[in-house]
Nucleic acid binder design. Structure first.
Lengths: 345, 345
DNA sequence: ATGTTCAATGACTACGTAAGCATTGAATCC
DNA sequence: GGATTCAATGCTTACGTAGTCATTGAACAT
C-alpha cells in the first residue's frame, strides 16, 4: 500500500529474506524460526507470535529448495505423460487436483515422441522427486526395469505391460473390453471389426485380447485394424477403410474414445448410420463420450479412483519389496449410449 | 544386467552418489567434477573422460535441488491453472511441450475454486521458480498486484484484466469477437443472443464488449445471458432457456467453445436446428470445434504462438520495468464452420 | 635462461534450512 | 533446600552444488 515496502532493516531489497533475517528481527535464533514453521508446537506461544510477526513484516517465505536439500524430500511428484491426447490430459488434471489436496505438487514431463522417453527419464532423475508416475502405455520394458532400480517410489499408470515390473494401477482393460464385446453379442452383432490405436501400446494389446477372446468364445468373427494413433483424425481416416471393405461389419469396437469419436464422424461422413447400420463402442469414458452428439457406448474408467490408488502407492510409508510390486486393477463401468441401441431388424 | 550394481567402493547402497564421491573415484577435486557437468569446455579431455567414466560407474546424477539452491535458479516454470476445462488443458500441454524443448519443466498448481487461488499463490511463493504463468481469467486485481511485487518473472495468460498490472499475453479477445459478430451480421442475423460463461471472468467481459459494440454499431440487438460456468453442461442447460424465450434470436454467440458445444447439443435436443433455425459461434478454436459433429464457427487462438510469447517474456534476460509491463496481443483466426452457413431465406 | 601468459585444476565457501546435541532455567519432588 | 526433570531455546553441522580465488605448470617470447 505504501511505496515499495523495501528498506526494512538492512539494504536487502526484497530478494531472499531468510530465516536468519527473521531470527535477527525477532531476537531469536535461526533454529527457533525454523521450528515455528515446521513444528510450532515445540515453541512457546510468546516466541511464536514474535517470530510470526517478524516474518510477516519482512515478508519471509520459507525456501522449499533449501528445505528439500536438507530434508531429502521435495513434496513434488513427477509425471511422465504423452504430450497429446484427451485421455492423458484428463488423467493429468486429476492427479494435479488430488495431489493439491495433499500439499503435493505435480511436475510435468511430457514427451511428444515415444523415442523421447529416454531423455525425459534422464531429466527426471536429476530432480529428487518424492515419487514418479509413468503414465504412458508405450514405455519400454528396459526403461521400466531401469526405473525399478530407482530409490524413489514409482507407479505405472494404465500400462498393463508394466505389471510385475513396477507397482501398477490400471483399469481392467481386458475384462472391460470383454464386457463391451458381450454387450455387442447380446445386441446381435455377428461380425465385428476392432480398431486399435497403436498396436505397440500395451493397453491396446490388452484391450484387443479382451475383445477377441470373448468374441471367439461365442463364435463371432473379429478383425483387427490399426488406426495408427490415438487421435480423432486417425479414427476419422480409418473410417474410410471400414466402409470400403468387402464385408461391412455389424459393429466396430474402438480401443479408445478419442479414436472412436473420429470413427463415428468419419462413418457418418461416409453415409453410414450409427447405430442403424453399424454399432460402435469406445473405451475410456471421456467426458465427451456423454455429449449428445456422440452418446457413445464405452467403458468408463473411474479415473478418480485410479489416480487415488496411484497416489496411495507413491506416498505409502512402507516401500513394498521390489521383487513383488503391487498391482492394482480397478474395474470399469459400462456406459450404454445410443451407439449400440438395439436395432429393429 | 549383473546382480544389483551395489557395493561399488564404499557401503553406500545407491542413495546419494555425489560429486564428491565421483571426484574421489576419478582422483580429481569436486570442483572439477562440477565443471565437467556444467562447463565441460573448461576441462581437459583427459580428465573429462576420467570423470565421466567414474560418474557412469557410480551412477552419479547431478542433484538439481542442490544446484538450484546454489545457483538461485530452478529451471522450473510454475503454472497456476484452473483444474477444469478443455481450454486450459490444451494451454497447459502446449506450455509443457514448448518448455521441454528449452530444458525447462512445468510445475502445476491447479485450483478448483477461484477462492483457492490465494492458498495456491502462497504455496507457489515457496518454490523459487524461474517464472510463473498465471493462466486464469478469474485471478483478482489484488492478487495480481501482489504477484507484481514478486522478484520473479510473471506473465498473465489470456487475462485481459491483468494488462498493465503484470506482463500479459492474450489473444485479441475483443477484436476476435467483433469479427465473429461482423460475420453474423453479414450472414443476415438481426437479433443476437450472447451466452457468457462466468461474467466475472475478464475474458468473458472483454469478449462480450467486442460483440456488443460491433452489433450496436450496426443496429443489431444483443442480449447477454450467463451460462454460469465454462462447461459443456452449463451450455446444454442454458440452451433450454434460449428456446423458451419470447423471441427466438437469429444467432447465438457463445464466449467459449466448450460452452458452445453444450449449447449446440442442447439446442438440437430441443428441436432447434443449427444453422437452419439459428446460427452459432464459439471462441477458442478447440480441436473439437473442427470435429464433424460440431463444425463450429469460432475464433481460433494460435495457442502455440501465445504460449511461445509467454515463454519469451518469462525467460527474457532483461526484466522490463515493473512500472510499465509489456502486453502482447495476438490476433486470432476465424474458422468458418457450418454452424453459420448462410441460410437460404 | 628468465619472465610472461594462460589453461587446467584445486581449495574454500555460501546457498537456506533442519536435525542433533548442548544449554538454560523454571517447576517439581522428597 | 538441593536434586531432578523437562520444556524452551541456542549452537553447530550437513545437505550437494557452483562460483571465487589461488595455485600449478607448460608453452612461449625475449
Amino acid at each position: 500500500m505504501s511505496s515499495k515496502s523495501g528498506a526494512d532493516s538492512s539494504r536487502r531489497t526484497r530478494r531472499g529474506v531468510t530465516s536468519v533475517d527473521v531470527a535477527a528481527v525477532a531476537g531469536v535464533s535461526q533454529a527457533t524460526v525454523g521450528r515455528v514453521f515446521s513444528s510450532p508446537e515445540k515453541v512457546s506461544p510468546a516466541t511464536r507470535d514474535k517470530v510470526q510477526d517478524a516474518a510477516a513484516r519482512l515478508g519471509y517465505v520459507p525456501n522449499v529448495i533449501a528445505r528439500s536439500l536438507k530434508s531429502q524430500r521435495t513434496n513434488i511428484i513427477g509425471a511422465v505423460v504423452p504430450a497429446f491426447g484427451e485421455y492423458w490430459q484428463s488423467v493429468l488434471t486429476e492427479f494435479s487436483r488430488q495431489l493439491a489436496t495433499k500439499d503435493r505438487q505435480l511436475l510435468l514431463f511430457s514427451f511428444a515422441e515415444p523415442g523421447d522417453v529416454d531423455g525425459v527419464l534422464a531429466s527426471v532423475a536429476q530432480y529428487r522427486l518424492d515419487g514418479l508416475v509413468l503414465a504412458s502405455a508405450t514405455i519400454g520394458q528396459d526403461q521400466l526395469i531401469q526405473m525399478r532400480e530407482s530409490d524413489r517410489p514409482v507407479v505405472a499408470f494404465n500400462h498393463p505391460a508394466a505389471t510385475g515390473i513396477v507397482p501398477s494401477v490400471s483399469v481392467d482393460n481386458e475384462a472391460g473390453m470383454a464386457r463391451l464385446a458381450m454387450h455387442l453379442i447380446d445386441t446381435g452383432a455377428r461380425e465385428i471389426l476392432y480398431v486399435g490405436g497403436v498396436s505397440s501400446a500395451s493397453t491396446d494389446q490388452t484391450r484387443y485380447r479382451g475383445a477377441s477372446r470373448t468374441l471367439g468364445e461365442h463364435g463371432v468373427a473379429c478383425t483387427y485394424l490399426e488406426a495408427g494413433a490415438f487421435t480423432y483424425e486417425a479414427g476419422y481416416k480409418v473410417a474410410q477403410h471400414i466402409v470400403e471393405r468387402q464385408s461391412v461389419p455389424d459393429a466396430v469396437m474402438v480401443s479408445s474414445d478419442e479414436v472412436a469419436f473420429g470413427v463415428h464422424d468419419g462413418l457418418r461422413a461416409a453415409g453410414v448410420q450409427v447405430p442403424a447400420d453399424l454399432l460402435l463402442t469406445g473405451f475410456d469414458g471421456l467426458s465427451q463420450s456423454a455429449w449428445a452428439g456422440f452418446d457413445l457406448t464405452t467403458l468408463v474408467q473411474a479415473t478418480d479412483v485410479l489416480v487415488a490408488r496411484a497416489i496411495e502407492i507413491l506416498l505409502a510409508d512402507d516401500r513394498p519389496p521390489e521383487s513383488d510390486p503391487v498391482s492394482v486393477v480397478v474395474s470399469g463401468t459400462i456406459r450404454y449410449g445410443k451407439t449400440t441401441a438395439k436395432r429393429h431388424d
